[in-house]
């Protein structure tokens, strides 16, 4: 397999995704298949080809510097599970 358990565990940590030990083998196998499939790109001759990040050849439009938003934090925080004193709560952050 192209990706072993350790590779997948590293990817899981980077993407902050828990995979159960039971899922691990299946995930490694399928990821390996996918990586193997996309590997065929490497055979393509692309010397001198510009990478295409975007389907349209356009420039960024810009917005005038104006404050247009108003305070709706109470409404927005209705979707949050834990809020106290207007703050979103998360497990302790360590610097």
């Amino acid at each position: 397999m192209l990706l072993n358990r350790e590779d997948v565990e590293k990817l899981c940590l980077l993407s902050r995704l828990e995979i159960t030990p039971e899922e691990m083998e299946d995930v490694s196998a399928k990821l390996s298949d996918i990586v193997n499939m996309v590997k065929q790109l490497q055979a393509a001759e692309t010397t001198g080809v510009l990478p295409m990040a975007h389907p349209l050849d356009q420039a960024q439009r810009m917005r005038e510097d104006k404050a247009t938003e108003t305070d709706h934090h109470e409404k927005y925080q209705q979707n949050a599970s834990l809020v106290e004193r207007d703050l979103y709560l998360v497990p302790k952050v360590i610097d």
Partner: peptide, 15 residues
């Protein structure tokens, strides 16, 4: 388009 004032009520300037 959120304002950028310092010291506002927490999350009141988060669109």
């Amino acid at each position: 388009g959120s304002p950028t004032q310092y010291g506002a009520t927490p999350n009141s300037q988060a669109s």
